[in-house]
Design a protein around this nucleic acid. Structure first.
Lengths: 122, 122
DNA sequence: CTCATTACTTACATTTTATATAGTACCTAA
DNA sequence: TTAGGTACTATATAAAATGTAAGTAATGAG
């Protein structure tokens, strides 16, 4: 995560590609390691930070925070803080976040198909 | 690209996620910088190495080679070498590669929707 | 006062991915 | 003999993503 250098060739290439190709644009946004899985869980309703952490056994708090921040930045999820102690923060998909559902479903079914294919070749 | 360390936590996390979630599995395979764009071009028919390079103005030959190799490894594209001089190599989607079409289309339309949304908010 | 809980934050280290630059083999045509 | 096209390979380096380990604030329970 960290910052991206807006002077790097990599940044220029990503930007140029995203300008032309909506699929590359989309992939830049949801292409992270945990992004899709988080969205996948949130498709079934809002969740707290701690709940998400439990659903993603290997994620570190740092990574979860970073991913959630990125998703929030891209308006895919919304964040609601309740002024309680101990704190409570809930995450929920926005409409454009829910609109990812067909994408996730398409990826899921392709993934299964691809895995079956490779397994049958052994 | 280079090699991935099979002893790293990152590798373990990716593997574990991919085992459970077909969408994460799929994302690992087609999540690269240029992967989807290459597939997108190949959806309209087989292409030579040099043709692909022209379609992707900023890609280096090395990156194109690496991406093509990775796609070939994952059985998404096939590679045909013609014993000519100068050499000719053609790349074509396999059936499972063509099966990416709905995924790409879903990503495209989500990407456009998302971009429109953000633009309208300015 | 001390501890526990929750949702973080920070500093740093490591791993993975991407780019830059130069070179190779092959034959052909001039 | 020399130049040229095609599809690469090798090596080095930069950048980005991910992981580790520790610490923070607020407050209510004991």
């Amino acid at each position: 995560m960290s910052e991206i250098k807006e002077t790097s060739t990599n940044f220029a290439n990503k930007t140029a590609l995203a300008d032309e190709c909506p699929e590359a644009y989309a992939s830049n946004i949801i292409g992270g390691q945990w992004t899709l899985v988080i969205c996948s869980w949130l498709l079934s309703g809002k969740m707290r930070f701690g709940e998400l952490r439990k659903k993603l056994p290997n994620i570190t708090e740092r990574m979860l925070t970073l991913q959630l921040r990125k998703l929030e930045e891209h308006k895919i999820i919304s964040r609601t803080i309740y002024a309680e102690v101990p704190p409570r923060v809930e995450y929920e998909l926005t409409p454009i976040g829910y609109a990812l559902k067909p994408v996730i479903k398409a990826l899921e079914s392709w993934g299964e198909e691809h895995r079956d294919l490779l397994n049958n070749q052994l």
